[in-house]
């Protein structure tokens, strides 16, 4: 299902270095399986608990970063897992087409680290959660503030800088790579 909103979103996200994949709800695990860094822990935000379990079952070292800052499925310490993590996978609240951004509400606690700390970030975006612009998105975010647990981050591409001679460099303190997986988008 390709719409002008998804297309505009994808174009803007790609122009700032984000990669786009389209998938369906059924094929999501398979898509993630193909995207995550191999042989390194994969950390999921709490709302993606089921996906974490399925990826764990598929042989990945997958964990859920919870509000308490510990990892599920394991006795492992959150700190230790976080340091080794190759990929952080996060759900999202909505996308913004006009700016190519995704609002991530990492579920409070230490969830906010998952989109910034591991070198590779994956954000799952439901195609029907795309909004036209900030003006449409912000009131919705405001309404959902309570359930989100107080933190929302608009992500528009991987971390970047131009502090050296205005040369664009992708990958500073945040991830070097950002994959956005659009669920129920086209090419399913």
């Amino acid at each position: 299902m390709s719409t002008p909103l998804t297309e505009a979103f994808a174009e803007r996200m790609q122009s700032v270095g984000g990669r786009i994949s389209y998938t369906t709800a059924e094929a999501l695990v398979e898509t993630l399986d193909g995207l995550v860094e191999r042989d390194r822990p994969v950390l999921f935000t709490p709302e993606l608990r089921d996906l974490a379990r399925q990826l764990h079952d598929a042989g990945h070292e997958a964990y859920v970063g919870t509000r308490e800052g510990v990892a599920e499925h394991s006795e492992a310490e959150f700190e230790e897992v976080l340091e080794r993590a190759g990929t952080g996978v996060s759900g999202s609240l909505l996308g913004i087409s006009s700016t190519g951004s995704i609002a991530v509400g990492p579920g409070g606690g230490n969830g906010g680290l998952l989109i910034a700390f591991p070198p590779h970030s994956i954000i799952v975006l439901q195609a029907d959660s795309l909004r036209k612009n900030l003006a449409e998105a912000l009131p919705e975010i405001e309404r959902r503030f309570g359930e989100i647990g107080g933190e929302v981050v608009f992500v528009s591409g991987p971390s970047r800088t131009a502090d050296i001679e205005m040369l664009s460099v992708v990958g500073v303190h945040g991830p070097t790579g950002l994959d956005v997986v659009i669920v129920d988008g086209k090419e399913a």
């Binding site: 509000r67 700190e79 933190e151 929302v152 981050v153 528009s156």
Partner: peptide, 24 residues
């Protein structure tokens, strides 16, 4: 500022839920 539509991260931070600190 930078000629971006939005910067890579715009964080909206409300409160500090009392969670454990991360000991590294």
């Amino acid at each position: 500022g930078t000629g971006q539509l939005l910067t890579a991260y715009v964080s909206l931070i409300t409160g500090r839920p009392s969670t454990d600190t991360i000991d590294m």
